[in-house]
Design a protein around this nucleic acid. Structure first.
Lengths: 260, 260
DNA sequence: CGAATGCTTGACTGCGGTCAAACGATGTGG
DNA sequence: CCACATCGTTTGACCGCAGTCAAGCATTCG
């Protein structure tokens, strides 16, 4: 995870086993809707323009003009906002199976540069969006599912606001870890409470609006209280209900739509 | 601004001078694009389903199913999220000329209930979106402008995250007040640094993730330093550049698209 | 006039930031 | 193989921003 030793990727690589990125997306989509054959084929046909991005490098540089849509095949990324005084605030975490870049709408979040946190492999998703934009009627369920993914992302953004606005460091951390767990579960990356957690405590701090040191204290507390522990890039949830209770702030009257 | 004395609005009222809501929206749109005759007529024809909502009442109850799109003709509203312990976090502030409710996409933010902060008058915008959805080709510039308004709203959400995540109370407040100024300017509600500011300090606190008491201290400081002062519902910017300098966190490399 | 609502102020506390140092892994080059 | 750098984690001491509690003021309104 050293940025110096992995210099100036991105590097074009042949698409070897890179198709697993599209399978990831497919798995995620099929949890939301039932796709027809054409839709499945379209998703699975995504394997062009594979790139590898070293940690710290931009995945989706807006450069001049729209960054083409891409699918994260593996690795973690985020969308940072950097303040003049050097502080960072993460808007977002991007996981395998997430789609990034512009899809013709130039939405601000989509236009925000994405930065690789680990080594990230990505493939082009232009073909997908071109197909959907040109003949959406052939892919009804696919459109619906991608829309729902978009909505979930927006929902996470709102959650993020609530976290940062009025939760303590402990609550924030718990809530965020549960969100990551849920999102990773949707792509089959969890095994009864265990999930990959490559985020540095510093990065977690930038995400949660906390200092590195305080994140460490919170993690120590969570470990001490046997709620969750993270070691060598793997998180282990030890008390799910307690963690949810700590993080929870569900209020039925203030929730958005029940299903995304 | 008393919730008890203005009981259980909404009340259906005849559309008297309510058409000014559509003129507001039109003014805003024309700053973004140049509309053709059909587009102008469509916007100005919005005058149906006028309602008045007392402070504290819901404007856009999701009830069961999609809340119909509405245009805020006058007054201020917000989208609160309420936590089980009673804390509130505002996701958003809604000003005259803002569109709320679902437009068929069921976006989480749009689905979130909106609550009137002052007395709010609103009119139905269903006609607008019905027309745009059925024959978008007839209203190209209108579609573009509404898209840009959507994007600006999303951009403000991201700004909100950065504010809450890594700015001090003073910076947050300054930044938020400048955002309100800019948004009110777009509808012609400012007069050289003066603009209506009906938000309670408590509400501002819920918006900025601060306590009522601390908001007060910050406002006192801003007044003492002759940056901005608020009295009897009116804000007066006294030192624009100092305020911007205080709030500013523009970083060219981390900005979204230059124009929304 | 009293009641309600919002603003203002003071005293105290504590969550979380900052500074500083040390420790453990991992990796690299001599 | 060891010396050394680098990166991430951990810990302690200290401090300050912002929250909480508690009054007291100012308006407005009935």
């Amino acid at each position: 995870m050293d940025m110096s030793a992995a210099p100036r990727m991105p590097t074009e690589t042949r698409s070897l086993g890179n198709a697993i990125g599209s399978e990831l997306l497919l798995r995620r989509l099929r949890r939301l809707v039932s796709l027809n054959g054409a839709e499945i084929n379209l998703v699975l046909s995504l394997n062009e323009g594979a790139k590898t991005h070293g940690p710290g490098s931009m995945i989706c540089p807006k450069a001049d003009g729209s960054p083409h849509p891409r699918l994260i095949a593996s690795g973690w990324a985020c969308r940072p906002r950097i303040l003049p005084d050097g502080r960072r605030q993460m808007l977002n975490v991007l996981l395998p199976g997430d789609l990034i870049g512009d899809r013709g709408e130039r939405r601000p979040l989509a236009m925000n540069p994405a930065v690789a946190l680990t080594t990230v492999r990505s493939i082009s998703a232009s073909k997908l969006y071109d197909a959907l934009l040109s003949k959406p009627d052939e892919y009804p369920q696919l459109c619906a599912a991608l829309g729902r993914i978009d909505r979930m992302q927006e929902s996470h953004l709102l959650d993020h606001i609530v976290r940062l606005g009025c939760q303590t460091a402990l609550q924030r951390t718990a809530h965020c870890l549960l969100e990551l767990h849920a999102r990773l579960e949707a792509i089959g990356f969890t095994h009864d409470g265990t999930f990959p957690m490559p985020l540095t405590q510093e990065t977690l701090g930038d995400l949660l609006g906390l200092s590195l040191v305080h994140v460490n204290r919170i993690m120590a507390q969570l470990k001490r209280d046997s709620l969750i522990r993270i070691r060598s890039g793997v998180a282990i949830v030890e008390d799910f209900t307690a963690l949810a209770l700590l993080a929870d702030r569900v209020d039925p009257t203030s929730r958005g739509a029940p299903e995304h």
